[in-house]
Amino acid sequence: MAAINGAIQEHKEWRRIGHVMAEENLETYTPDADPTVLRWRREDEERQATEKAAQTQAAAAEADERLAADHAPAQVVLTGLARAGLHDLDGEDHQALQHLAHLDDATLHRTADWLERTRTTALRALPPRPAHRRPPPESWTRRS
């Protein structure tokens, strides 16, 4: 039964290729001129890029967890960075956190407090959102 299914799939593929050659007015078949093959390649590249991004994100999360577990003082700074809205840390950031973790607790807490104050100040500096008020019913246009 598997041999029959394989032959059916091969037959479908040859018919598809014949259709592409007729549509594209080709004398010889080349996968580079086949829109379906190009779509398959594009989808494969997108899938690979998505997988790579997921792996990179997982590795970064693992590094964050390892850093937090290894250096409890660094957790104070990580929390301050997260509250300040800085979530994506690269290798240099982790290296800086390791250096900060060797400082005394008072300096670490002052750094975290400074990050929190910076965030609060930045949020206050944002322009206020305009208040949208619904017009009173008297101003509504009535349909006849």
Rank of each mutant, 00 (worst) to 15 (best):
M1L: 14
A3N: 15
I4A: 14
I4P: 09
G6Q: 15
G6V: 15
A7I: 14
A7Y: 15
I8E: 14
I8C: 13
I8K: 15
Q9W: 15
H11C: 13
K12T: 12
E13C: 10
R15D: 11
R15P: 06
R16L: 12
R16N: 09
I17W: 08
G18I: 09
G18T: 05
H19R: 14
V20N: 03
M21D: 08
E23N: 05
E24Q: 07
E24M: 10
N25V: 02
N25Y: 04
L26A: 04
E27A: 12
E27Q: 11
T28A: 14
T28R: 13
Y29E: 11
T30P: 08
D32G: 10
D32T: 07
A33D: 08
A33F: 08
D34T: 05
D34A: 09
V37S: 07
L38Y: 10
R39T: 12
R41P: 03
R42P: 04
R42T: 11
E43C: 09
D44L: 13
E45F: 03
E46H: 02
Q48L: 07
Q48P: 02
T50K: 06
T50W: 05
E51P: 10
K52W: 06
K52Y: 11
A53G: 13
T56R: 13
A59P: 11
A60Q: 05
A60P: 07
A63V: 04
D64N: 06
D64W: 03
D64I: 06
E65Y: 03
E65K: 00
R66I: 07
R66T: 12
L67E: 00
L67H: 04
A68R: 00
A68L: 03
A68Q: 06
A69W: 00
H71C: 04
H71D: 02
P73E: 02
A74Q: 01
V77F: 05
V77I: 05
V77R: 00
L78M: 10
G80V: 02
A82K: 03
A82L: 02
R83P: 00
R83Q: 02
R83L: 00
G85I: 02
D88T: 05
D90T: 08
E92R: 05
E92Y: 06
D93W: 02
D93R: 04
H94P: 06
H94V: 04
H94M: 07
Q95E: 01
A96I: 03
A96R: 02
H99Q: 00
H99T: 01
L100W: 00
A101E: 00
L103F: 05
D104T: 08
D104S: 07
D105W: 06
D105Q: 11
A106V: 05
A106Q: 07
A106G: 08
L108M: 03
R110L: 09
T111L: 02
A112P: 00
D113H: 08
D113K: 09
D113G: 06
D113V: 04
W114R: 07
W114N: 08
E116C: 06
R117K: 12
T118F: 07
T120E: 12
T120G: 10
L123N: 10
R124H: 10
L126Y: 05
R129K: 05
A131D: 06
H132F: 09
H132Y: 10
R133Q: 14
R133K: 11
R133V: 12
P136K: 13
P137A: 10
S139D: 13
S139M: 14
T141Q: 08
R142K: 15
R142Y: 14
S144C: 09
